[in-house]
């Protein structure tokens, strides 16, 4: 359980969380925001795995994608609520 919490926290304060929100704030289409967040999650996990499938951990990949998707959606909601353009 701690392992999962730690992975979620690391991703929320890492690229998927921060860049996911930032990218989400750039669009009013929630599906696009979620897609961009998810992509950041995939890229980040591969980046830390040295671009090698063998080093990839499925739990980390799944958590990074989920956190990225959620962060993207949060960013999009901020855009919808906080901007008129």
């Amino acid at each position: 359980m701690l392992e999962i919490f730690g992975t979620i926290g690391g991703n929320a304060l890492g690229l998927p969380g921060l860049l996911g929100v930032a990218l989400g704030m750039m669009t009013r289409h929630i599906w696009l925001a979620a897609l961009m967040g998810g992509l950041v999650g995939i890229v980040e996990t591969f980046l830390f795995a040295g671009w090698q499938f063998a080093n990839l951990e499925m739990l980390e990949l799944v958590v990074a994608i989920v956190v990225g998707v959620l962060a993207g959606c949060v960013g999009c909601v901020i855009r919808l609520k906080g901007a008129s353009v």
């Binding site: 919490f5 730690g6 690391g10 890492g14």
Partner: peptide, 15 residues
């Protein structure tokens, strides 16, 4: 040293 691994370690250190 890497940021995301570091944050993970810090959260797990709550135990």
């Amino acid at each position: 040293h890497e940021w995301s691994h570091k944050i993970k370690a810090k959260i797990m250190a709550v135990k």
